[in-house]
């Protein structure tokens, strides 16, 4: 299944956001997520199913003013 993570295409097994994040190397990281522009809390990543073409945003703490 093809999804977009931070604008880049990735092929992942059909499943949940939590599984996809693990597969992409985000396991255990301090991140926040959104799917198709909507915030997805960490607690519901394991029950959030991804669909073909979904746009996932993964953000981490960064310097800011």
């Amino acid at each position: 299944m093809r999804i977009y993570v931070n604008g880049d295409q990735h092929d992942v097994e059909p499943g949940t956001l939590a599984v996809a994040l693990d597969a992409l190397g985000f396991g255990g990281r301090k991140i926040a997520t959104a799917v198709n522009g909507r915030f997805v809390a960490a607690a519901v990543r394991p029950t959030t199913k991804l669909a073909e073409g979904d746009k996932v945003e993964v953000v981490a703490p960064m310097q800011g003013g």
């Binding site: 931070n6 190397g25 301090k30 991140i31 953000v59 981490a60 703490p61 310097q63 800011g64 003013g65």
Partner: peptide
């Protein structure tokens, strides 16, 4: 201190080390 959030790839660690510093 003000902070922000930005995209981070699975292979990157910049955000994590910044957060440890703060």
């Amino acid at each position: 201190v003000t902070v922000s959030l930005r995209r981070e790839a699975g292979s990157e660690r910049g955000g994590q080390s910044f957060w440890s510093l703060v």
